[in-house]
């Protein structure tokens, strides 16, 4: 039952992101540039990951297994802490790189923040996937 709720929450989040993305795509008046296509790609990747983990949780629950066991919790925690550490360096390098350009408008500032947030999400997803393949060697 808990696993079903867990999967439903994941599917709801994925539907919410897709809904917001659809709203943005159909309501924007500006033509799409490379950044917009990149954003759509990253969002689809995130939604794909959420749906995949929701399906896995349902499969586990169907087989009578606990989808949120101690190893998966540890993997999520370790991925989050590693992603946070790497993100600090990413922002630091980004700030140095930004020194070369002038941020003279709100849109440019939004662009930088959006890239940073997507970068952080991607770093977390890749580390999470990597750790779930190789496990945690916590000796």
């Amino acid at each position: 039952m808990k696993a079903k709720k867990f999967a439903i929450v994941k599917f709801t989040v994925a539907a919410f992101i897709l809904g917001l993305m659809g709203f943005w795509i159909f309501n924007t008046t500006k033509p799409f540039n490379e950044f917009a296509y990149g954003t759509i790609g990253v969002m689809l990747l995130i939604v794909g990951f959420i749906i995949y983990s929701g399906v896995q949780a349902l499969k586990d629950a169907k087989s009578g297994l606990n989808p949120e066991d101690e190893l998966s919790k540890k993997i999520t925690q370790k991925a989050a802490s590693m992603a946070f550490s790497i993100s600090i360096y990413m922002w630091l390098i980004g700030l140095f790189a930004l020194d070369m350009f002038s941020i003279d408008s709100v849109n440019k500032a939004k662009f930088v923040i959006a890239i940073g947030m997507m970068g952080m999400t991607l770093i977390f997803l890749f580390i999470r996937l990597y750790l779930s393949k190789v496990g945690i060697d916590d000796n």
Partner: peptide, 19 residues
């Protein structure tokens, strides 16, 4: 199922990749 974890956890335990 008996110990309430996912199959992957048993796989990692058997390989010695998880304490």
């Amino acid at each position: 199922q008996k110990v309430g974890v996912r199959r992957e956890t048993i796989v990692f335990l058997e390989k010695g990749k998880y304490n």
